[in-house]
Write a protein that binds this DNA or RNA. Sequence first.
DNA 1: CAACATACGGAACGGCGTTCCGGTTGCCAA
DNA 2: TTGGCAACCGGAACGCCGTTCCGTATGTTG
Lengths: 195, 195
Amino acid sequence: MADIDSGSAQPAPRKRADARRNERALLDAAAAAFVTSGVDVPVRDIAVRAGVGVGTIYRHFPSRADLIVAVYRHQIEACAEAGPALLADSDTPYAALARWIDLFVDFLVTKHGLAAALQSDDAAFQTLHAYFLDRLVPVCDQLLDAAVAAGEIRPDLDAYGLLRGVGNLCIGAGNDPRYDARRLVDLLVAGLGVR
Amino acid sequence: MADIDSGSAQPAPRKRADARRNERALLDAAAAAFVTSGVDVPVRDIAVRAGVGVGTIYRHFPSRADLIVAVYRHQIEACAEAGPALLADSDTPYAALARWIDLFVDFLVTKHGLAAALQSDDAAFQTLHAYFLDRLVPVCDQLLDAAVAAGEIRPDLDAYGLLRGVGNLCIGAGNDPRYDARRLVDLLVAGLGVR
DNA sequence: CAACATACGGAACGGCGTTCCGGTTGCCAA
DNA sequence: TTGGCAACCGGAACGCCGTTCCGTATGTTG
């Protein structure tokens, strides 16, 4: 159920074997390349790693953003699902929010260049933008609402703004040991608390 | 005294008239292009605007970062000089810090793409990075130290981290009406305060 | 095994930043 | 005024990028 599309009778009449093999090789190669060289690794490098031509990449993933989404889908999904769980497990909604944001930061700072790609206004990255937003904004919203309802934080900020802010703060983390994105995010979250 | 180099006997033996004319035309053209299309406007566009060849740009400004620095030098200088002034004029060091950061945010959000360029780890932008840091970190440090000494903020954060955080939060502001960088910066600064 | 849809590889395209160099032009000395 | 030279100019050229296109190869199905 974590696959791209599930349920219903397979309306896609099954792909050719080599196509499926290449798609998997591409996902593996891309994941490895992203770790080594960041998400802006040249498309050709990924193609070489996977042992395919560049055309094959674009047939499977119409834009580089789709490839990024495909590679990280599981982790994003896991992050989204952790929201309600944290809300149930934590002492207060605010604590749940803080821990959830920690999770999000963990995810972002370990993916070189991903936070930057998320903010790019390049049309090619709209898919990426949209997927993150669709999946995470509702979760964040729920946490935020609960914390506001509990009177723990000011109702200053919407989920979209918070997520973008956190995402922005994570840009460049990992490239520069002097820059501690996590601490800044903590301060931001602290600033959210009622005084 | 606000010019690029002043004082001392001119060790540079005076440039040719056309060179000086072109340099000025380039600065004007670049400033206009930055407003219209952001700081990542293609170099060729700037050249066309200025009525010169691209070679001329690189002769005067070895990298695009140098051009950006040259265009905004005055404003950055003004921002730096406002630091001590605010410290003298404000009720508390924390208030001065908050107002100074406001100034910095004002500067960044009105320059499309500048905040993003500031964070780029591309080698070509090292000059840009270095200039901002050299000029603003000491000022921010002074404000931060004063506020810490007054017991107004926690000594959690160094000037470098704060400036980068604020810079990061300003990325993409102006492209997206749903994203209010200023509010996030305010929250961050609020988080800095002692509780 | 044939024949056809599907998928493949990589050349080709347009755009970018930057470099290079043959031609031009401002400047100063004669 | 003019000659000559250093300084400067324009834009072609280079290498890298993402993306598109198409002739060819191959899995699949009857």
